[in-house]
Amino acid sequence: MLFPISQGFSQKTDTAPTLSVTLTSHSPYVYQDEMGYTIVVGSVENKNAQTAVTNVKIRATFYDDTSVAPLEIVSGSTILDIIPPLGTSPYVIKSNSPNPQITQVGVFLETFDSSATKSKLISLEESGILFDGNLVFSGILKNGPAPSADTNVYLAFYDRFQPPRLLGVSTIPLGDILPNEQVSFEFDEKINSQSVGFKMFSDSDVFYSDFIDIKLPEPEILSKLVTISDVTVTDSLGNRLSE
């Protein structure tokens, strides 16, 4: 379910110190999951060409239709702990409670710090993809020339809107990886039916990768040919009329 974003709440103006880091959209994708929690999905862009940023905090404020007082205020972080110069990172923020009264959400960039950047020395490649309602995807990660920890591969799904909206982010944890090691990974889950593709990317404590854009194939539909044989037609007295 898509909830409207109140323009009165969402159109905040960043102050001068935050102009180099911005929300890519003040109207992120907002939906209610199967447990009733409200999920906010969006992305943050680092517009600085020289400096990476870290500790990026985004505030989501949840409202109902009847009051300007928020029902909840939740702070979240970007998926990437360090956003490189001119880079972007998705974020996902979840309400604290499954509140059906939430109908509007405002998002606001709170704080960030400058940071040394990581080295872009992780490479990713696709090795197989099948879409039949579930997405079955496999790939290979090649690590850089040093050991890494907390290595993850991310799939950020988007729809056919222009510009595309982020619908969700799935994480494939890989953990510790040796220098120059190649690691296979797999993903097999049901995904948002509005998804038309995803961006695959990775990071660890020391390295990160490019974003790789992958389009979803058309769903494979299995069909069965049914053959009926040995059928006879009889009249009311049981006499055979045809074969």
Rank of each mutant, 00 (worst) to 15 (best):
L19R: 09
Y158R: 07
R160W: 03
N48S: 11
P98I: 05
D159I: 09
K142F: 10
F187C: 08
K224I: 14
T15W: 01
S148W: 01
T227Y: 10
E45A: 12
S138I: 09
D213E: 14
F207S: 08
V136Q: 14
L141M: 13
E189W: 08
D210A: 15
I5H: 00
Y63C: 05
T103Y: 01
E126A: 14
S138M: 11
S6A: 13
N143M: 05
E181T: 02
V74R: 06
L130Q: 11
M35G: 12
S170N: 08
V136A: 15
S236V: 14
S10Q: 04
K215S: 15
Y91P: 09
V92Y: 00
N96Y: 04
V21T: 02
S229R: 10
T22I: 15
G106F: 01
N134G: 09
S27P: 03
A156W: 01
K57Y: 04
T227K: 06
Q50F: 11
T234W: 00
S67F: 06
K118A: 10
V74T: 11
L19V: 13
F201H: 05
S223E: 12
N96A: 14
P145C: 08
T103A: 03
F131L: 10
F62Y: 14
R240S: 13
V40A: 11
P28T: 04
G197S: 08
K215P: 12
D132N: 13
D176C: 03
L155G: 04
I191S: 11
S67N: 14
Q162L: 12
V92F: 03
F131N: 09
P219Q: 04
T38F: 02
L222M: 10
F198Y: 07
S229A: 15
G87C: 07
K57A: 12
L80S: 08
T234C: 10
G144L: 03
V226Y: 06
K12G: 12
N55E: 11
P179I: 03
Y91M: 12
D14A: 07
D159H: 02
E181P: 00
M1P: 08
F3Y: 11
E189M: 09
V196W: 00
S229V: 14
N96S: 13
I83M: 00
D188A: 11
I214R: 07
L216D: 01
N48C: 06
T66R: 05
G238S: 04
T66V: 08
S89L: 03
G238T: 09
D213K: 03
D203Q: 10
N143Q: 09
Y91W: 10
E45D: 06
S209C: 08
S127G: 12
T227R: 11
T38H: 04
L178N: 13
Y31V: 02
Q182M: 14
L19E: 13
D33Y: 04
I5D: 01
